[in-house]
Simulated assay, not measured.
Amino acid sequence: MAQLHDIVIDCGHPAAVARFWAAALDAYAIAPYDDAELARLRAQGVSGPEDDPTVLIEPKDGGPRVWCQLVPERKRAKNRLHLDLRSADMAAEVSRLVAIGAVVLARHAEHCVLADPEGNEFCLFPHR
């Protein structure tokens, strides 16, 4: 039986998208860059973390990791897969997410549809 291991977000600027999702998700943070990782990036011609083509966001207490990976094309259509988030205070969370770069796409009776800074859609639901 398969288990969910990673969630991968295609994007044009992985570091910026990773910062958004690390701030959006409770108990997630961008994985630290140690000397070995910085040397590996330099060997690939990458100047540093801001230009890293694959940025890892790690959960603090288990759960799937999130990778933000560079792709050459821009987002052109509705996501075929999206994340559903939940919050105890929907209004406050929508405001917080918008303040860190999300855009509200639609408000419905039971949830809100938003997009991250590069247009990747996600939904926010209340805790039940």
Rank of each mutant, 00 (worst) to 15 (best):
L41Q: 06
L41T: 03
L41N: 07
A43Y: 09
Q44D: 14
Q44P: 02
Q44W: 07
Q44F: 14
G45I: 13
G45D: 10
V46P: 10
V46M: 04
V46H: 05
S47M: 09
S47R: 13
G48L: 04
G48C: 13
G48K: 04
P49A: 08
P49R: 05
E50F: 04
E50Y: 03
D51G: 05
D51K: 08
D52I: 08
D52H: 05
D52G: 06
V55D: 01
V55G: 02
V55E: 05
L56I: 06
L56V: 03
L56P: 01
I57Y: 00
I57N: 00
E58R: 01
P59I: 02
K60P: 00
K60N: 02
K60Y: 00
G62I: 00
G62H: 02
G63L: 00
R65T: 00
R65H: 00
Q69W: 03
L70V: 02
L70I: 15
L70Q: 07
L70A: 04
L70C: 01
V71S: 06
V71I: 13
V71W: 02
V71Y: 08
R74E: 12
R74D: 06
K75T: 08
K75D: 02
K75W: 01
R76S: 05
R76E: 15
R76N: 06
A77E: 13
K78H: 15
N79A: 04
N79L: 11
R80A: 06
R80W: 06
L81H: 10
H82P: 12
H82Y: 07
H82K: 07
L83G: 01
D84E: 11
D84A: 14
D84G: 09
L85C: 09
L85V: 06
L85R: 07
R86Q: 12
R86A: 12
A88D: 11
A88N: 04
A88L: 13
D89L: 14
D89V: 14
M90N: 12
M90A: 04
A91M: 14
A91E: 12
E93N: 07
E93S: 04
E93A: 15
E93R: 14
S95T: 15
L97E: 02
L97Y: 11
L97G: 04
L97S: 02
L97A: 07
V98H: 07
A99N: 10
A99I: 01
A99L: 13
I100F: 02
I100C: 14
G101P: 11
A102F: 09
A102V: 03
V103D: 12
V103G: 03
V104A: 05
R107P: 01
R107Q: 10
H108D: 12
H108W: 07
H108K: 15
A109M: 13
A109G: 08
E110H: 08
E110Q: 05
C112K: 03
V113S: 03
L114T: 06
A115H: 10
A115F: 12
A115K: 05
D116K: 02
